[in-house]
Amino acid sequence: MNPNQLASQMISEASQVAINSWNAIKSTAVTEFRGLSQRIVMIARLYAQGEISKAGARRHFKAARYHVIAILAMLTALVEAAAAKIVNAALKVIADAVNAAIGFKLV
């Protein structure tokens, strides 16, 4: 096993996983923040039209703030899952290299 060659393979696999995961996370974040904007506009409109009370508007704004926290929790979970995928992609390269070097499936 050549450590430099192994390292390049690991970086290549991990980079691909990182790019794919990052694009998915970015797209999810954009969707959720756009949705939140739509919600804020709707609360303001319903309050202005008198369909919801001041207390009602306050409740919905509060929930919108909680939603921002939930989006952050979601992004955290996605980032952690992406990090695990990146590490696992690198570990698979090593496992494949070890198995190929010894000629049978050890790891």
Binding site: E32, G35, L36, M42, R45, Q49, A63, A73, M74, A77
Partner: peptide, 27 residues
Amino acid sequence: LSAGVAQLNGLSIDQSVRVALTTVRAN
């Protein structure tokens, strides 16, 4: 629930469910 209030709550709940599902499905 007026149409507008139902729409606002429906939208808010859909968004929260989507975020919760995405979080739960991360792994």
